[in-house]
Design a binder for these strands. Sequence first.
DNA 1: TCAATATCTCAACACTTATTGAGATGTAAA
DNA 2: TTTACATCTCAATAAGTGTTGAGATATTGA
Lengths: 106, 106
Amino acid sequence: MNVEQAAKQLEALGSPARLRIYRALVRAGHAGLPVRQLQERVGIPAASTLSHHLQRLVLTGLVSQERQATTLICRAVYPAMDALIGYLAEECCADERCGATGEEAA
Amino acid sequence: MNVEQAAKQLEALGSPARLRIYRALVRAGHAGLPVRQLQERVGIPAASTLSHHLQRLVLTGLVSQERQATTLICRAVYPAMDALIGYLAEECCADERCGATGEEAA
DNA sequence: TCAATATCTCAACACTTATTGAGATGTAAA
DNA sequence: TTTACATCTCAATAAGTGTTGAGATATTGA
């Protein structure tokens, strides 16, 4: 995980709409949610708007999609969030272990 | 911490420039960094650009500033990042404890 | 007071993003 | 085949963002 990628994922989560979407998917668990149900759950009126947000989450690797006939199942990609949290904790947190990670010491 | 606030902070960190700024401040530790040194360290050419990014970080509570005569010392606000990581871990992570936090069960 | 320094504010521009409706595509079922 | 359904793609518009130079403000020192 580097700064660029972390920033990309943070930006993807950095909109209330997308954070709600992601959270709904996490809560849906392994089964995931079809786009339609996701739309009702997060309260986005236009399907095209949701589609747009979903694309951004998929592009950053935080969400995956699997087609089942006509419906698209969306799922949170847990390892991606784990990696992001790990990056924040290691690179951007104030614990003792931090402050000299070395990747880009400048 | 609610969705709106978390999204605001994630968005603030969701630009490579600002994530670098924040990381530089974390690494600077308790002493913090003056704006000028920060500018050199993260390689932003225009002072006005850095000022703009810093404002966004300050507005979300992730960075604080203290004036010392003419120089402005910037510091990472560690508890803010702790709270953000905590939110992500509780609300958006796949551990057993997660999936039914209840705040907004929909 | 005058000059130097640190930082900000402002205005401008190009670029990106969010939202939406309309219509396209693909699947299933009658 | 026709219909219904799920979702996407496209085009348009409004709003927001990033970057910059020019100039303002405030502090310090000669």
